Amino acid sequence: MIVGVPKEIKPDEYRVAFIPAGVEEMLKHGHTVLVEKGAGLGSGISDEEYARAGAKLVDKFQEIYNQSQFVMKVKEPLPEEYPFLKEGQIVFTFFHFAASKKLTDTIIKSKIVAIAYETIRDEHGQHPILTPMSEVAGRMSIQEGAKFLENPMHGRGILLGGVPGVAPAEVVIIGGGVVGSNAAKVAAGIGARVTILDINLDRLRYLDDIMPKNVVTLMSNIHNIREKVRDADLLIGAVLIEGSRAPHVVTREMVQTMKPGAVIVDVAIDQGGCVETSKPTTHSNPIYREYDVIHYCVTNIPGAVAYTSTHALTNATTPYAIAIADKGYERAARENPAILRGINMIKGSVANKAVADTFGMSYRAFG
């Protein structure tokens, strides 16, 4: 199979979908790998490294799409790429369809096979490709939140950990999954007062066992969310419903009760955001203010630390990519339920029920 790796064109996206070690593995399995020149530079990988691994370097992303049967990316195709998608072509990337009707309609019309990183789920209920990026995003959410709480950034001017005689910041995290737990570890380690809210009581018990004493767990309900949002200096939105749009668990009215200069980091923005006042931003222009509250809603948070993120991502994607290339998506999906769950679109049909339900579309399961 011819596998293509284009350079990411999403603003401030520095990751790349495949590293030279992955190229070597693909070649061992008899496949050809095309890499767009410059694709790895943002992650510290030179064209020469790809060439030494056996990749064929091409000049433009159009060539990748024209020649490849299987395209590997990091983020969803953008409008510049839409005309080059080919019927039956496999595209393996983060799609996050629920956040964009336009993208969903375009991919249906293109008749490609869309396999989404974020819905690959193993027999243990884990998301092996989404997890490493959620770990990065969770940790970075505290790093970025702390920065925008500073006075020069027009934040509250509060140090997360405080100092002797001065209280630390109140960090409120809605969602106790991978993003939320990683955010809590970092915030607690700095010395902040941390509250995690989640709807799963078993998850809260687990977090209560493993977290330090400056982390409090609360059942996520409207009353508790309303109270804790009002208290927060830094609010982290970390709600995930696989394949579906994130619900607005923090309403506009709740945001209006927050302290002037408080910060919201909505990590769920990839799936539409879990804060009603959230709208997508970029690393170049990461924040905006609404109701005197700073909103940080970057849609590709891990892209800012591309070396770490690229290696963490490709560690997870490479085994699945090789299986798909070796067997084709149909056999690979029949033999591995995790890959089956990753299939969102097949040649014009929606194969993921959560995506179909989000937009009121018809749904046809694979097989």
Rank of each mutant, 00 (worst) to 15 (best):
V186T: 04
I108F: 01
V33I: 06
V136I: 14
I108L: 15
N344E: 12
H311Q: 03
T119A: 11
S284R: 04
P247E: 06
K228N: 12
A351T: 14
G145R: 04
I264F: 12
R139N: 10
I264W: 12
M133H: 03
D59L: 05
P319Q: 03
T318N: 12
I112D: 01
E13Y: 07
T282M: 00
T281F: 02
A323T: 11
A351V: 02
A98S: 15
P164Q: 06
M219P: 10
V216Y: 12
L313M: 05
A167M: 14
A312P: 03
I346E: 15
E227V: 06
S244A: 14
D326F: 00
L218E: 14
H311S: 05
P79W: 02
E330P: 03
A306F: 10
I173W: 14
T32F: 00
P79Y: 04
R139E: 15
G138N: 01
E227T: 09
T104P: 08
R245A: 14
D292V: 01
V298N: 08
K213M: 12
Y14S: 02
A338N: 09
V16G: 08
A232H: 14
F97W: 05
T119L: 10
K213S: 14
K347S: 13
E36D: 02
V178M: 10
G42I: 10
A98G: 14
Y329Q: 07
I115K: 09
R230I: 01
D208V: 00
A99H: 02
D59A: 13
V16N: 05
K37E: 09
P168W: 11
E144N: 01
H29N: 13
V216T: 14
K102H: 11
V71L: 05
A316F: 13
G138K: 01
L85T: 07
T358R: 07
I174R: 02
K228Y: 13
G367P: 06
V305W: 11
H127V: 12
Y14M: 00
I112E: 00
A183W: 12
K101Y: 06
